[in-house]
Nucleic acid binder design. Sequence first.
DNA 1: CAGTGGTCTAGACCACTTT
DNA 2: AAGTGGTCTAGACCACTGA
Lengths: 243, 243
Amino acid sequence: MITRSPSLTEQVKAHLKERIVGGDFEEGRIPSETELAADLGVSRTTIRDALSRLEHEGSIYRKQGAGTFVNQPGLQIKSRLEEMWSYEEVLRDHGYTPSVRVGEMRTEPAGEQVAADLKLEPGEPLIVIEKLFLENDLPVVLTTNRLPQRLVSVPVRASDARKPLYGLLEDHCDRFLSYYLSEIVPVALGTYEAGRLGVARRTPALSFEEIGFDQENEPVVNATSFFRDDLLRLRLIRRKAGA
Amino acid sequence: MITRSPSLTEQVKAHLKERIVGGDFEEGRIPSETELAADLGVSRTTIRDALSRLEHEGSIYRKQGAGTFVNQPGLQIKSRLEEMWSYEEVLRDHGYTPSVRVGEMRTEPAGEQVAADLKLEPGEPLIVIEKLFLENDLPVVLTTNRLPQRLVSVPVRASDARKPLYGLLEDHCDRFLSYYLSEIVPVALGTYEAGRLGVARRTPALSFEEIGFDQENEPVVNATSFFRDDLLRLRLIRRKAGA
DNA sequence: CAGTGGTCTAGACCACTTT
DNA sequence: AAGTGGTCTAGACCACTGA
């Protein structure tokens, strides 16, 4: 049962998370680190790593000298902004059963901004994929991804576009998406976006403007996303740096 | 020179951060963990902790088997959303020289929502403090904090309201602000907020709606903030959970 | 193959809370 | 005083990269 991959720490974290949400811990008190280490047969360091991650994501809190406790308010957060990865997963975490619709797929020359973002010459061809994520035919997220055509080694067909973007990058470009550098921009939806999302023109919405980087830290994709705020509320935990 | 408090790890992190932004590392390559440990006279674990924090905040990236490198794009982020703490600091990080103006201070009975957020009975008195953060007389952030009057042990005067909120809670309520649970909400600014921020009515803006918790994990403050998007752009790094 | 980061262990000592 | 989390060490072994 105890194996590598995922790491011991991840296994311990998952195990504890399960017990936490299952209400296994009376009155919200979690056993001491020493006790957990003995029970699970791992070192205290491993326990501490797992607990640190749970604390960071808001599931528990610790008080030096006192103990470790379940953090009820933190458990309400379904998906944290810094850890949103695939929109399908985000929707599932919210209890939805998401579907994906590929709105459009085309090529276009890179504009100045996108070229700078992706370290291309202006005019280099981009593959543009527009996707809509829905819950029960209700549009929730609209995304547009632009990636350099020259990265593509295996041709992309329309049916491939359904894949999550990181999967597409792996399968067709042999690149592994590592992280996004994102800006959050408030907008009043234009006619086109509002139409796609099924809301009135000028509805206030959040948008992400972001650049995705691969493991080599090379920019591989430029993405813009719009959210239906009434269906998907973005949450996060803010704390002092270094805490 | 080497002392406790801040922790060794924090000192190492600060030291490395300085060298990173100072361009000390040729071609972006950072010495190996073993080497750093020997140079600085600390254990590899301490080095790893410091590097992990730098990696998490986007200053560096690591490639197993290859090495550790400076992450130029990540260095552009002045203040990360999850680690915004005091708006004055955020503005300073952006190169501004911020000033604070206390707009209004009053008491009002708690409405249903705020009462639920702060675990109060509806109608309990709240202290409401509205503050405006400016750069060169240009308003950038407008915040409204609501805290239960009964938490206050030392009376709050108008001059006290200038303090950062966490300082006010410490001095007057003996509570220590631990974290905020925040929602990001897109809005079209109303007449009042637009006026305070010096922009046109209906300008799209981001707002935070959040609850602040203390070390005991008790809710202590309800806060709403509005941002001038043209002066303060919110950025963050999104990565896969657990990475 | 040597060198790098990734994971894990066992144990020490400290700071703090609670009784 | 006893028990808790916070920090740090030294060392082992693994997985991966690149020459």
